[in-house]
Design a binder for these strands. Structure first.
Lengths: 123, 123
DNA sequence: CCTTGTGTGATATATTTAGTATAACATATG
DNA sequence: CATATGTTATACTAAATATATCACACAAGG
C-alpha cells in the first residue's frame, strides 16, 4: 500500500499515518494478520523520523487496530468493541453533521454520501 | 446558550468553542442574525483569555458561520457554499466511516446514527 | 466631549505538542 | 555472531496553545 504524507497539511504526520493505515484496512489493502512495514523501514520510505512512525503504531495499537509483536513488528489485528466504536462514531458524526446541517446539507445528502463511501470501500 | 469547556480534553479550547457554537446553530439555539457574546464577555464567562475566544470567532468567520461587525461583534451569518460543504463533509466522513467499518459497523448502523442525529437536531 | 464597549493589533511569556537526532537495550531469527 | 525487531532514554528545535498586558480605531450614548 502506498502511504502519502502531506507535509503542508495542518494535520500532524502521525495522525495522517494513522488515518491512512485505517483507510487501508477498511479498503482491504491491509488484511487481518498482515504485517506492516517496520518503523525504521516505513520512516525511511516516507522520509520521516522513526519515532513518528512508532507513535502512529502505538496509537493504532491502543485503538485496537494492530498488535505489536517484538519479533515481527506491527500486525493488523482488529479488536472489535462494537458498543464503544458506535459511541465514538456517534460523537464524531455529531460534529460533522452539525457543520453539514448549517450549510444546508440535508439528511438525504448525507445518506447518499454514506452509501457512496461504503460502496467505494467495498462494504 | 450554555457553552461548556472541558479543560482536560485533548481538544484545544478554541476548537471546542467552534464546535459548540456550530452545534448551537444546528440546533437552532443560535439563529441567523443573532448576536454572539463579545469576546471579552464570553472569555470572562468561561474563564479563559479574550484572544482564545477571538481565535474561535475568527475561524468561524473564515468558515462562513458568522460575520464580524466592529460595532456589534460576531453575528450568526451562514455563508452557504453547498458544493464546498459537501466535499468537506465527504472527506471528514471518509475518515469516520473507515474507523467504523474496521470495527464491524455496517452501513445500516451508520444510517441509523445519521437519522438519530438529524432527528435530535430537529432537521 | 467623554466614557464605554466593540474588534483588532502588537508584544511577551509559559506550557505543551510535534518532530527530529542519536544512542543504547532486550530479544528473536538465521 | 550478525541482523532486525520494538522499546526506551535523552536532548534539541520548532510550532501550537493559552495567557497576560497594553494600546488603537471606531461607534454609541449620555
Amino acid at each position: 500500500m502506498i502511504i502519502e504524507i502531506d507535509f503542508n497539511s495542518d494535520e500532524a504526520i502521525y495522525v495522517q499515518l494513522c488515518n491512512q493505515i485505517i483507510l487501508g484496512i477498511a479498503t482491504s489493502q491491509f488484511r487481518e494478520g498482515e504485517q506492516l512495514p517496520s518503523v525504521r523501514q516505513l520512516a525511511e520510505t516516507i522520509g520521516i523520523n522513526m519515532h513518528t512512525v512508532n507513535k502512529a503504531y502505538s496509537i493504532l495499537q491502543q485503538e485496537g487496530f494492530v498488535k505489536i509483536d517484538r519479533r515481527r513488528g506491527a500486525i493488523i489485528a482488529i479488536d472489535i468493541d462494537k458498543l464503544r466504536a458506535l459511541k465514538e462514531a456517534q460523537s464524531e458524526l455529531a460534529v460533522v453533521l452539525a457543520r453539514a446541517m448549517c450549510k444546508g446539507i440535508g439528511r438525504d445528502d448525507i445518506h447518499a454520501l454514506v452509501d457512496q463511501i461504503y460502496d467505494h470501500y467495498g462494504g
